[in-house]
Amino acid sequence: MPVPILKQGDFLIATVQSALSDREVLQFQDDLAERVGSFRSRGVILDVTALDMMDSFVSRAFRSMALMAKLKGAETVIVGIQPEVAFALVQLGLTLEGVNTALDLEEGLAFLRSLTRRRTDGR
């Protein structure tokens, strides 16, 4: 099942709805990169609330998605990592260095909005 990516103003919201196979992860990676470019998005929210686990493959993929989006001018924030998932990731030694995180969608949006606000204020 492909990951739906919704456009909301300057932001993209991608909501992972169920466990992804490796192929689906790679597809998602391509889709998102393409959308960030075509919509000239300023921010991306990657909502992983529905994921009951993240292994090294998916966490590396998410991290490179965030870095690629940044190269195209969009800041990414991963939201909704569950407590058990966070615990397992740290045990595994994967801590998504350099990627923004927030508690949930609401927090993620607030984070991205504060970035945009600061940016317009600065001009």
Binding site: I81, P83, A86, V90, A102, L103
Partner: peptide, 12 residues
């Protein structure tokens, strides 16, 4: 250190 990193993953 793990406690800090895991908290950060949850946005705290």
């Amino acid at each position: 250190v793990q406690l800090v990193k895991a908290s950060r993953l949850m946005g705290a």
